[in-house]
Computed example of a mutant assay.
Amino acid sequence: MSAMLATQQPFFPFANYIVYYSVNIGLFYAHAYVLTRTFTRRRAAYWTGAGLFLLNFLFFLTLKVGMDLFINAGNSTFAARIQSALKYLPLNVMRNCYLIILSTFYWVGGNIAGYRRKAEASEKAELLAQKETAELGARFAESRNAYLQQQVNPHMLFNALGFIHTHVYRSSPDAAHCVWLLSDILRFGLDAAEADGKASVAREAEQLGHLLEINRFRFDGALHIRVEIANDLGSYRIIPMILLTLAENMFKHGDLRNAEAPALLRLEVNGDGRLLFRTRNRKKAVPPMARNRALGLQNTRLRLDFAYPGGYTLTTKDEGGWFELELAITLN
Score class of each variant (00 low, 15 high):
A205P: 08
Q207W: 07
A199D: 01
Q151F: 10
S171A: 15
G209D: 03
A202E: 07
E213I: 02
L212N: 11
V152C: 04
H155W: 12
A199C: 05
G221E: 05
V168Y: 09
A199I: 01
R216D: 01
W180F: 13
H167W: 04
I164T: 12
D191G: 00
A202G: 06
H224K: 05
H224A: 06
L190Q: 06
D196C: 10
R187N: 02
M156K: 07
D184V: 00
R203Y: 03
H224E: 06
E213K: 09
N159V: 03
D184H: 08
F219V: 00
G162D: 11
G197T: 07
S200C: 00
K198E: 10
R203A: 14
N159I: 04
A193I: 06
L223K: 10
Q150R: 06
G221P: 07
L157W: 09
H224N: 11
H167I: 09
A199T: 04
I185T: 10
D220W: 00
V152K: 13
S172H: 12
L161T: 05
Q150H: 07
N153F: 13
E213S: 13
L211R: 00
V168P: 08
M156N: 11
L181V: 02
N215F: 04
F188H: 13
A175C: 13
H155A: 11
F158C: 02
A222G: 06
V152T: 11
D220L: 04
R218V: 01
A192G: 06
E206M: 09
A202C: 01
D184N: 12
I225D: 01
G221W: 09
G189P: 00
E206R: 13
I214M: 15
G189S: 14
A175M: 14
P154L: 14
D191N: 08
E194P: 03
F219H: 11
A205C: 04
Q151C: 06
A222K: 15
R187G: 03
E204D: 14
H224S: 07
V168K: 13
E194N: 14
P173E: 10
G209Q: 05
D191Y: 15
D174S: 15
M156D: 04
T166R: 15
D184R: 12
A195W: 07
G162E: 12
H155Q: 15
H167Y: 09
Q150T: 10
R216K: 12
F158Q: 12
A202T: 11
G162N: 15
L212K: 03
H224T: 02
D191L: 13
R187K: 09
H177Q: 13
A175N: 12
G197C: 08
V152P: 03
A202Y: 01
V201C: 07
Q150Y: 08
R226C: 03
L181D: 02
F188N: 01
G189E: 04
W180C: 06
I164F: 15
H165K: 12
H224F: 11
L181K: 10
A175D: 15
H165P: 00
G209C: 00
T166I: 05
D191K: 06
S183D: 02
V168E: 10
M156I: 15
L182K: 03
V179E: 08
A176V: 08
N159A: 12
S200Q: 05
K198S: 10
H167L: 06
H224I: 01
F163A: 10
